[in-house]
């Protein structure tokens, strides 16, 4: 029982990180039709800024140092995401394939640049001690970072929902997902919403990067790419452009991965996620929420 509980909480924690990454991907795709391959780069940029800032400020206790570094990482990651949209995506509006290609190029180039500057080996980040400890619930020793991951994802989910349902910009984004041409015809500059959505996606991916850094206590040039591949799967299963669908799919993928890795054999979890994707596609080609046309 305690193992099952540990697996469940860990699966939910993993799902939380997938959700944070996938929600941005899903919003960007839903609004702009762009599959953002550079999403992994947002993770890399945030994680490396965090590591860099943390290693530069010395005489500060661990907790504030980590918080300052994380904040710096989030700011840099968000600005980077917004700039990506402004500089690289904006000039290519209406040409989806070219936009995808540009994000692919950016992903490869930035990963190569980071490898060139800091090497391909992982760099160690000092996380606050509390995160590494465990909390015991019903006999299960659960690492504290899992709670943090789940809580953060839930907050982000509610914040995103509130933003989309209660604010004017959220309304524009939702309307844009439904019918972009109509929103433009009504005299609203949708392009501001594009930049905004990219910034939000970059911020959410950055939060995932901070949480992942807490979990692994290292940063390396490839981790963004490997996380994003599972986020892609989550987005497809959840149905492109739907936040709630993404959340459900993220939880499902995280749990399936954990259970299969433990109860079947290590590595099978990743494969069963792909199998899950195949089943969902055969049964419901538009994903769980079915909003993708």
């Amino acid at each position: 029982m305690s193992t099952f509980l540990l697996l469940t909480i860990t699966g939910l924690g993993l799902g939380a990180m997938y959700f944070l990454i996938a929600s941005g991907l899903s919003l960007i795709y839903g609004l702009m039709g762009v599959l953002n391959f550079a999403h992994g780069v947002f993770i890399t940029v945030t994680a490396y800024t965090l590591w860099f800032v943390e290693s530069k400020i010395g005489d500060v206790p661990v907790l504030p140092r980590f918080l300052i570094a994380a904040l710096a990482g989030l700011v840099v990651g968000t600005v980077f995401a917004a700039l990506t949209e402004l500089v690289l995506i904006r000039p290519l509006y209406g040409r989806h394939i070219e936009q995808v290609l540009v994000t692919v190029g950016l992903a490869l180039a930035v990963t190569a640049l980071v490898t060139a500057i800091w090497g391909s080996d992982a760099r160690v980040v000092t996380a606050p001690a509390w995160v590494g400890q465990t909390t015991t619930i019903f006999g299960a020793h659960i690492p504290n970072d899992r709670w943090l991951e789940i809580a953060t994802a839930v907050i982000v989910l509610f914040a995103l929902e509130a933003f989309l349902r209660r604010t004017r910009y959220g309304l524009i984004v939702r309307a844009g997902v439904e019918n972009r041409a109509m929103v433009t015809a009504l005299g609203i500059d949708v392009r501001k919403a594009f930049t905004l959505v990219f910034a939000i996606g970059g911020l959410a991916a950055g939060i995932a990067a901070v949480l992942y850094t807490l979990y692994s206590t290292t940063v390396d040039p490839q981790q963004g790419t490997s996380l994003v591949i599972f986020a892609f799967i989550v987005v497809v299963i959840g149905g492109l452009g739907s936040i709630r669908g993404t959340a459900w799919a993220a939880v499902m993928v995280g749990l399936v991965q954990q259970y299969a890795n433990y109860y079947a054999s290590s590595g099978l979890g990743d494969l069963s996620v792909v199998l899950l994707l195949g089943i969902v596609l055969i049964a419901r080609p538009r994903g769980l929420s079915g909003s993708f046309a």
Partner: peptide, 13 residues
């Protein structure tokens, strides 16, 4: 890969 990635972006543009 950095050079080729940048070249690629330039070609797309």
């Amino acid at each position: 890969l950095f050079i080729l990635g940048v070249l690629f972006i330039l070609v797309v543009f």
